[in-house]
Computed example of a mutant assay.
Amino acid sequence: MSVAPQSVGRRERNKQHKLDRITAAAAELFAEHGVDEVTTQQIADKADIGTGTLFLYAKTKGELLLLVQNSSYADALAKGRTAAEAIPDIFDAVMAIIRPVVECNRKQIDNGRTYLREIVFGDPEEPQHRDALGLSVRTEAAIVDVLMRDPRLEHRNAATLAHIVSAIMFLSMAATINISKSVDEILAEISEQIYLLLPIGGTRRSAH
Rank of each mutant, 00 (worst) to 15 (best):
V8L: 13
I22N: 10
I190P: 08
V35P: 00
V3R: 08
A78N: 07
R149P: 07
L19Y: 08
V94C: 15
H155Y: 00
S180E: 03
K181R: 13
V8H: 07
H33W: 15
I186F: 05
D48I: 01
L64D: 02
E28Q: 04
D45T: 11
R106M: 15
R113G: 02
V137G: 15
A84D: 03
R149C: 12
G34I: 00
G52K: 04
M148C: 06
L64I: 05
V35I: 14
S182I: 06
L29W: 00
I194T: 14
I177G: 04
L147Y: 12
R204V: 06
V165G: 03
R152V: 11
V8N: 05
I164A: 10
I97R: 10
Y195N: 06
M1I: 03
P5A: 04
L66W: 06
K107D: 00
I22A: 03
L135Y: 13
Q108G: 00
G112W: 00
K107W: 00
H208M: 07
E63T: 08
H155S: 04
E185W: 02
M95D: 10
A159S: 15
L198M: 02
I164S: 05
Q16H: 06
G201L: 08
R10L: 13
F121Q: 12
R99N: 10
V8F: 11
P199R: 11
F55T: 02
A158P: 14
F55R: 09
H33M: 08
I119L: 12
E125M: 15
L187Y: 12
T139P: 01
K15S: 00
R205I: 09
A175Y: 03
E85P: 11
L64M: 04
R113Y: 05
H208R: 13
A74Y: 11
F121S: 09
R149V: 10
N105P: 01
A27T: 06
A158V: 09
V94T: 05
R81P: 06
K46M: 07
A44T: 12
R130P: 08
T139I: 04
K46A: 12
R99S: 08
R205P: 04
E154A: 15
A27I: 04
T51C: 02
E85N: 13
Y195M: 13
G201T: 03
V120M: 09
T82E: 15
R204M: 09
I98L: 07
E185N: 01
A25K: 03
V183Y: 07
F55N: 04
Y57R: 05
L147W: 08
A86I: 05
E103Q: 11
I97W: 06
R205D: 10
A76K: 09
K15G: 00
Q41V: 13
I186E: 09
